[in-house]
Design a protein around this nucleic acid. Structure first.
Length: 482
RNA sequence: GGCGCUAUCGUCUAAGGGUUAGGACGGAGCCCUCUCAAGGCUCAAAUACGGGUUCGAAUCCCGUUAGCGCUACCA
């Protein structure tokens, strides 16, 4: 039974790279019929904030993937202490009484020689160690990395292949701080063992930490999980994505706020560092689950393409438009309604349903619908330049003739788009003007701009009364300007 | 500094000894067309560098360079 976990620590919002790690874990679990676990790694009391925790949940909820079990490390401290105690008993760990500032200065003095361990502390007898601890002297508990004989720690990463490192290059890392709070390494391994995690899928920044974890799992007597490290997501400047350097673009929430479909965003993130081994790009959630394997994960870091002017990756935008396009119109309308409403438009269910098909292939984000569809909802058109009313290769007089003809021909008869087209085309040939010259002034009069959805469908949805009003107003405008 | 990882068009990537090095986004152009979009077609655009191994290297090996990661009582 596959069990995987996503283990964020609440020290910031949900980072785009973390989101991808979550998604890959989730996909792996679903593909294998396994269990997805969310574990909040909040062992660093100093840096954790409730605000950050809330924002991580907000991001995760928006992704709309879900998880099966949930844990919080701050509620499991007893586990880490018990494990630490056992490690100490068995000689896998030792107390280091060196004060924190003394260590720093020692390192400076000795250059690089002091980083591995403190031989005196490692060699402290159990009796003296116990005595000093009992007397209340603060210490950190360190893992006793096997030194003599020096040996090689090895594991096979499911993405990066065989990995090995000499214990001579692994330092005696801390397990417990002087506050008795566990460090990341300790809490993480104890939990992974306790929760029977079968596959640890996480960022490549943990690849070298894994040697320590292998040692810890062995000492804990735990079954060794499989490891799979993921290439990192980096900024266009090649640096690690950070809030400090790159601003809020590293948060998943800006994609939500920009009007992304969560499915499209998930799709985009999947294509960063993974591919289905065929040419598919736009994939549904089901297709992703079906196609996802660790073999498809590659090894080099991927750039999230954004600029200072535009925080959204162009490929993400394109994928979003593809997902919007393949949504059933009723579903899209449902999503668009609140967007329009919050822009201050008066929108009924029925109106939303009629407008949506006209703009569906013209929006890349949900938010685009505000600007693209304004004239369907606004009673009064935003002011526009009268010159826009004048068609290509035409003049003001032609525009006036066209609009007056439209005003004559539109009030009677069927107002369906087919009937409108028929009448307008007939009117154009009567006038002896090209169809385009006929349609353009009407489009601008009704929509307030040159670029809009197909004219006849648009007129139909806008409605006869409003169309006539707007055309009349355009005529006034033209006359006033001349 | 030490240790580890990585290197194909601007970006995401395919090809894992034999291909005119393929696709996608973005860019340019053309077609379609009532405008815009969508769609179709075309073009420009890459194997970091140097050595090996081999009949043959983007692919395997070594070195160089560059980038990233770890080297905390952060995670």
């Amino acid at each position: 039974m596959v069990r995987v976990r996503f283990a964020p620590s609440p020290t910031g919002y949900l980072h785009i790279g973390s989101a991808r790690t979550f998604i890959f874990n989730w996909l792996f679990a679903r593909h294998n019929g396994g269990t997805m676990i969310l574990r909040i790694d909040d062992t660093d009391v100093e840096r954790n904030t409730d605000e950050s925790l809330a924002s991580i949940f907000e991001g995760l909820r928006w992704l709309d993937l879900g998880w099966d079990e949930q844990y919080r490390q701050s509620e499991r401290f007893h586990l880490y202490r018990e494990a630490a105690q056992a490690l100490l008993e068995k000689g896998f760990a030792y107390r280091d009484f060196t004060p924190p500032d003394a260590k720093a200065s020692a390192e400076e003095g000795e250059g690089k020689s002091g980083w591995l361990c403190h031989p005196e502390m490692r060699a402290l007898s159990r009796e003296e160690s116990d005595r000093r601890a009992a007397s209340g002297e603060p210490f950190v508990l360190r893992f006793r990395v096997p030194r003599e004989p020096e040996r090689t720690v090895a594991f096979r990463d499911l993405v990066y292949g065989e990995q090995s490192k000499s214990t001579a290059d692994i330092e005696d890392f801390a397990l417990l701080r002087s506050s008795w709070a566990p460090t990341y390494h300790h809490a993480s391994c104890v939990d992974d063992a306790d929760l029977r995690i079968t596959h640890i899928i996480r960022g490549q920044d943990h690849l070298t930490n894994t040697f320590k974890h292998v040692l810890l799992f062995e000492a804990l007597g735990a079954e060794m999980p499989a490891f799979a490290h993921l290439p990192l997501l980096i900024a266009p400047d090649g640096a690690k994505l950070s809030k400090r350097r790159h601003g809020p673009v590293v948060s998943v929430l800006i994609y939500r706020d920009a009007g992304f479909l969560p499915h499209a965003y998930v799709n985009f993130l999947c294509l960063l560092g993974w591919n289905p081994k065929d040419d598919r790009e736009k994939m549904t959630r089901e297709e992703l689950i079906e196609a996802f394997t660790l073999e498809g994960v590659n090894r080099s870091n991927a750039v999230v393409n954004f600029t200072e002017e535009d925080p959204i990756d162009p490929k993400a935008l394109w994928l979003n438009s593809q997902h919007i396009y393949s949504l059933p119109a009723e579903k899209l309308a449902e999503l668009l309604e609140p967007v329009w409403r919050s822009a201050g438009y008066e929108v009924s269910r029925e109106k939303a349903l009629r407008v949506t098909p006209l703009i569906q292939e013209r929006i890349k984000t949900l938010n685009d619908a505000v600007a693209v569809a304004d004239f369907f909802f606004l009673r009064e058109l935003a002011p526009y330049d009268a010159a826009e009313l004048i068609p290509q290769k035409g003049d003001r007089a032609l525009a006036l003739r066209v609009l007056e003809k439209a005003l004559a021909v539109l009030p009677d008869g069927d107002f369906s788009h087919a009937a409108i087209e028929e009448r307008l085309r007939a009117a154009a040939s009567e006038l002896g003007v090209k169809a385009g010259q006929m349609f353009q002034p009407i489009r601008v009069a009704v929509c307030g701009r040159k670029n809009a959805p197909p004219l006849f469908e648009t007129l139909e949805v806008v409605g006869r009364e409003t169309c006539l009003e707007r055309i009349a107003r355009a005529i006034e405008l033209l006359k006033r300007e001349s």
